Simulated assay, not measured.
Amino acid sequence: YTNQESHRKEIIKKLNIDELVLNKINHFDELQIRVNLSLINGILKNHVQYDNINPLLLRISSASKSLEKIIEIVEEIDQDDKIQIISLRECNQEIKKLFPILLAKEYFREHKIKNEKEINETFHLIIDEAHNILSHQSNREAESWKDYRLELFEEIIKEGRKFGFFLAISSQRPADISETIMSQFHNFFIHRLINDKDLRLIDNVISTLDRRSKLLIPTLPQGACIITGTSFDFPQIIQVNKIEEKNQRPNSDDIDLEEFWNKGEENGEAEA
């Protein structure tokens, strides 16, 4: 595992084979092989205790199997596209929390290094369904891991602006998101909210929203929103135009139950 030629020859000699070929395994399998070989080496030299280190190896194995399904490691990537869209729709809950941390941390670290002395470009990280990633309530993860996850995004939203790194989030459940993160946003686009917890959060966090605008939030029609924040002198109500061509707009239309049921009855009569 140390890639030393003497070790390699000794292994081949002991195994009585001509050559070791590992070209066909992927990077995640290689990682597991290397950590297990490192564990064996540590045990032989009495550097580690198996019972102490084995739980970590199990976590590496579990995370590797999940990440292997969504990550492909390549030598070069296409940097021409200015917009990258990453969907986690098919991922389990573990990956929905783990992968955004890896992604945000690496992009933020790389961007800070490039723009530490002078900002040459900006980076905009936009997170949809952010309550799945930035939730401060989770029974599926340890407290230390949850704290690390939230602290990373809190650092990004507090320190990112001076490096030209900006964060935008979208969520139907803002009350589930860390209040520290919510309080750091400068501008808000508020669509209809009817949950008491969400409305209380809006009341506590957004100081630029007047009482009249707050009362309108539960009754806003589809496509309407209240915009407020440091970029606006006062709260404004806007109506977003609907894209008429169905194949060009997001697949998020509300189902028309009356039309659906009538269609079902017509199909039933036709079959009869």
Score class of each variant (00 low, 15 high):
N3G: 13
R8S: 06
I12N: 04
I12R: 03
K13L: 04
K14M: 04
N16M: 02
N16G: 04
I17G: 01
D18Q: 04
E19W: 01
L22Y: 01
N23I: 00
L31K: 00
N41S: 13
G42R: 07
I43V: 15
K45V: 11
H47N: 14
H47S: 10
V48S: 09
Q49H: 09
N54E: 14
L56N: 02
L57S: 02
L58T: 06
R59M: 05
S61D: 13
S61F: 00
A63D: 08
S64T: 08
E68A: 14
I73E: 05
E76V: 10
E76A: 05
Q79N: 14
K82P: 11
I83T: 15
Q84F: 10
S87R: 12
L88G: 13
I101H: 07
L102V: 11
E106A: 06
Y107I: 11
R109E: 14
R109N: 13
K112A: 06
E116C: 09
K117F: 11
E118G: 02
E118V: 11
I119N: 02
F123V: 03
L125S: 04
I127W: 06
D128R: 04
H131Q: 13
H131R: 02
S135C: 09
S135D: 08
R140N: 15
E143V: 10
S144E: 11
W145N: 06
D147M: 11
Y148E: 12
R149N: 03
L150F: 05
L150Y: 05
I157L: 07
I157H: 00
E159Q: 13
E159A: 08
G160D: 03
R161T: 01
K162Y: 04
A168I: 06
I169M: 02
S171N: 03
S171E: 02
R173L: 01
P174T: 02
A175V: 00
A175T: 00
E179M: 06
S183M: 03
F189L: 13
F189Q: 09
N195Q: 08
D196Q: 08
R200T: 09
L201V: 13
D203N: 15
D203Y: 08
D210A: 06
R211N: 07
L215H: 05
L216C: 07
L216K: 05
I217T: 01
P218D: 07
L220S: 03
C225T: 00
C225D: 04
C225V: 07
I226G: 06
T228R: 05
S231T: 06
F232I: 09
D233L: 14
P235Y: 04
Q236L: 15
Q236N: 12
Q236V: 14
I237H: 06
N241H: 11
I243L: 14
N247S: 08
N247M: 12
Q248P: 02
D253T: 10
E258Q: 11
N262Q: 14
K263Q: 11
K263I: 03
N267E: 14
E269P: 03
E271T: 12
A272K: 15
